[in-house]
Amino acid sequence: MRNWLLPEYIEDILPADALRIEQLRRRLLDLYHVHGYQLVMPPMLEYMQSLMTGTGHDMELQTFQVVDQLSGRLMGLRADITPQVARIDAHLLNREGVTRLCYAGSVLHTVPSSYTGTREPLQIGAELYGHTGLESDIEIQRLMLQSLSLAGVKDIHLDLGHVAIFRSLVVRGGVSEELESELFKALQSKDIPTIRELSASLETETQKALLLLPELYGGLEVLAKASKCLPAYPEITQAIADLNAIAQQLQGVVDPCFDLAELRGYHYHSGVVFAAYSKGWANAIALGGRYDEVGKSFGRARPATGFSMDLRQILSLMLPPPVPAGILAPHLQDDVLQSTIDALRSKGEIVVVDLPGHESSQSELNCDRALKWVNNGWVVEQI
């Protein structure tokens, strides 16, 4: 057995990509910092009861579980950082006003989200607590779009939805919990024949509305059609008004599309949901939405909205920049040489000291210049 092999969908990040990911992480956290988002670092491991609070059954299936040798309780390796941040807001910070938090760290999934995905995403995101209005949803969406732009992602496409539309249909239509789950699955795949079969026993108005949802995808005309054709329940009317208002606020930033059958995180989110896509990439590259119920699950109701994305995935969308070359320096006990090296490094230059007794090729060291003694001083020359 080859003991250097890693599990499926788990891989090392090698120097060139590791540097790019770290540089992007720093730039994004700096962006969140100047917008007032404070960095938190939740633990990788928590009790399952805490990790699963308010997240639904799907997250439990994605979570690696272990037994704590100290307490005997079941623990989990986090599959999502957002619930942890909600716990920090609800129980540790315990603030009354608006709180803005951000984070960056690894999460672990029992199975990858796609055939080309990883089971160890590097999740980064921002969350805003304590505000119920659309202003906070729009702030988070703008920050997500800025993040993608900062990462150099081109042709960003934004999809918007609202879970209250489907939720109001099943509640007012008297749909059982089991049937709701089946309809949810069919809507995610836009399987109209299955939706028709599942909804056959429901009232005609409810069935027509459910069958219409997969077709409600597109520009602002979708909202006009939804307003005209869906039942005039207060929740649906308000959801459509919210989506219209967001579209107006994002004019000039992005032209959003609307997908009223999009229910990603349905058991987790409570209002507007959104996803960013990029040309040539099938899966969403950033996800977010409102999740007011999670704080309530922790015993302290706090409205919340946020987004997250995977730095590994974002890296695959970026054109690789040229790898910066360094300066090769000899290994000598020379104070002047050391001062020269320190000065170069303080300016951001990479200086690699060529250790004695271990010859390395210039390609391995990635140096295109060298420090040489010329005219009583150390100078940088091209190799």
Rank of each mutant, 00 (worst) to 15 (best):
R2P: 07
P7L: 08
Y9S: 13
I13L: 12
A18E: 02
Q23H: 10
Y32D: 09
L39C: 07
M44V: 12
L45F: 15
E46W: 11
L51S: 04
G54Y: 08
G56H: 06
M59Y: 11
L61K: 15
F64V: 13
R73E: 15
M75T: 01
A79P: 05
A90W: 01
R100T: 04
A104Y: 08
A104P: 01
V107H: 02
S113Q: 15
Y115R: 15
T116F: 05
T118C: 13
L122I: 11
Q123P: 10
I124W: 08
T132R: 12
E135R: 09
Q141I: 15
S147K: 02
L158F: 03
D159K: 06
L160K: 01
A164T: 13
I165V: 14
F184L: 15
D191Q: 08
L202P: 02
K208L: 12
L210T: 04
L212M: 10
L220W: 01
A226H: 04
C229D: 15
C229T: 06
L230H: 07
N244V: 00
N244W: 02
A245R: 14
D255Y: 00
P256M: 05
D259G: 03
A261P: 05
R264S: 07
G271R: 01
F274H: 02
I285W: 03
E293P: 00
G295Q: 04
K296R: 13
K296D: 12
S297C: 14
S297F: 02
G299P: 09
R300G: 01
A301S: 15
T305K: 00
R312K: 13
L317Y: 08
V323E: 11
L328W: 03
L337P: 11
L337H: 10
R345K: 12
I350K: 08
H358N: 12
W373L: 12
N376D: 14
